[in-house]
Design a protein around this nucleic acid. Sequence first.
DNA 1: ACTATGAATTCTGCATACAAAATATTACAT
DNA 2: ATGTAATATTTTGTATGCAGAATTCATAGT
Lengths: 212, 212
Amino acid sequence: MPIERRPLRDQIREELMLRLDRGDFAAGTDINEVALAGELGVSRTPLREALITLAGEGVLESNQGRGFRFAPVSRKEFRELCAIVAALEALALESSDPAYLEKIAPELLGLAQDFSDNIAERQDIERHDDEWHDLLLSGCGNERLLDLITSVKAGMRRYAHLMTGESTPLERAAEEHCRVAERLLDGDLEGAAAALRDNWVNGMERMMSRIP
Amino acid sequence: MPIERRPLRDQIREELMLRLDRGDFAAGTDINEVALAGELGVSRTPLREALITLAGEGVLESNQGRGFRFAPVSRKEFRELCAIVAALEALALESSDPAYLEKIAPELLGLAQDFSDNIAERQDIERHDDEWHDLLLSGCGNERLLDLITSVKAGMRRYAHLMTGESTPLERAAEEHCRVAERLLDGDLEGAAAALRDNWVNGMERMMSRIP
DNA sequence: ACTATGAATTCTGCATACAAAATATTACAT
DNA sequence: ATGTAATATTTTGTATGCAGAATTCATAGT
């Protein structure tokens, strides 16, 4: 088996995102480099490299002389990010092969349906939602676009753990996913893209109240 | 006067982009960290930090064990990037204040017109074009979107110096800019966004032949 | 009690040092 | 002459070290 050989900075970045998803860090928290490096068992150099990439994705901020901290959340920024991914995912969908989309449409519909059935843990929900979107965009040949989408979404993960329990928003999301899938079944690409945009806009509205 | 106090990595990044614009580095060139650091008069640490941010923007690639190199150019990637900025700039335009847009429309038109008049150096042309687009988007309140656009455009600069002499594409671009400005004068936001998208798509087509 | 000033401490930003991987070079065998 | 193995060199990836900025704490003055 090929042993893992990739830069520490990548592994560190991954681990930090994992911890962010677990809600280990509150927004606005300063990062202590020596402490975190010690905790991770690495030196400050690759840690700082990881922090810099995260800052580039908007997960962190850096200020001269006072290091890095998790970027604070705000309704304004959340709105902005939602508008961006909405546009990017719609573009990705529109530049996908229509034939391929029709082929995966049933699967998308199925996923969306048993999405509403089992109301599980928050993390499961998110994973499920992410997988659905990934599958939806799997036919897009624009690699840079897909990379960009993942990068922007990384910047949104800070908002994920604000979405606690409550099933109503979840059911609404599942409904919207169904609507997208149905449009694709009909071969209506533009309609699907519009429905996808709606999904993001509505999702934004749903979250809004929970953000300070 | 407040003296300049910002991280070396930022200044280094800026300097490298400047050199990239000057055409100092060919696409695909490997970067020798010690040599470049010496040339810039800095240590490898902040240089590597700058390289990592540039890699995040797609200007560079990094491979385990063999460092950084300027990402090779390809028609496919250029197409992809154009599609992305087209969508992002259109979004920025659509989420701007219509009243403000109408106000700056005359200026945009004027700039586009004397754009075609003086056919100057390549660098001047690019600067002029950039300024026009910056002004166009200056009314967009979505800060994250504007940041993202500059970041994606940074990844496109590798293609800029391929656009040498020849005035025809330039005149076409100016025409298209005029069209966008005219739509804005009429208060036709959607039309302007569509014209803007066209500008990017056509610009892409124009460049295509010059890319290997 | 509260503010201001200055020392002590903590932490970042940058430089240097070291180890391992990748590349180049040489020697040798076919 | 060509290909290959062994060795030397270069270069990256990571760790450590050091100077200065930012913060904290303590003390003095009002």
